[in-house]
Amino acid sequence: MSRRRDWSALAGCLAVVAAIAVGVGDREEGVPMGYADVAVGETGASSTFAARVLDVQVGRQVQKDEYSEPLVTDAMFVVVEVAADAFTEAVSFSGDVWLVTTTGHRYEPRPETNLGHPPFTPPGFTGTGTFVFQVPPDRLDGARLLLEPPTGTFITYDVAVRVDLDLTEDTTPVATPIELGEPSLAVTP
């Protein structure tokens, strides 16, 4: 009886270790991820949100607000306005948004403009905001916006929304500073 209890305890411990190992596995290698591939203006859905890109602009200057000088780059800013409907969980998009190039490089939104990001969006609401990426001009061609669902504790299948931004190397940059709009939150129609 005692021996059976010992073996049960050992098996329980091993199960806990296995669960932790599976749960903390590297996301890129471990999480089965599908993609909802959409174009600008189309809506793609994951398990927790539906998102669409409303507008895309490229330029070398971004105006954050009326109080500060424009940010200026020798590379290129890609300014993407996004609307996201939260389904059953709140959506924050912190650390889950990338601009992915055809070369396989992943660019995070620039933190200088994070006040323009979509706000924390509770279920039933739609958040709208802007992400600004800084990218070498020769990597604009075919660049896509990737919106990933939040990482769960354990591996589950999910879908990331991937939006073809319809950019090419010949996309004409906006000559004047691109003004960032105010983020907004509204009840999903």
Partner: peptide
């Protein structure tokens, strides 16, 4: 200054 510390590939 106006820039954060974030560094982007090949910039």
């Amino acid at each position: 200054g106006v820039w954060s510390t974030q560094l982007d590939p090949d910039i």
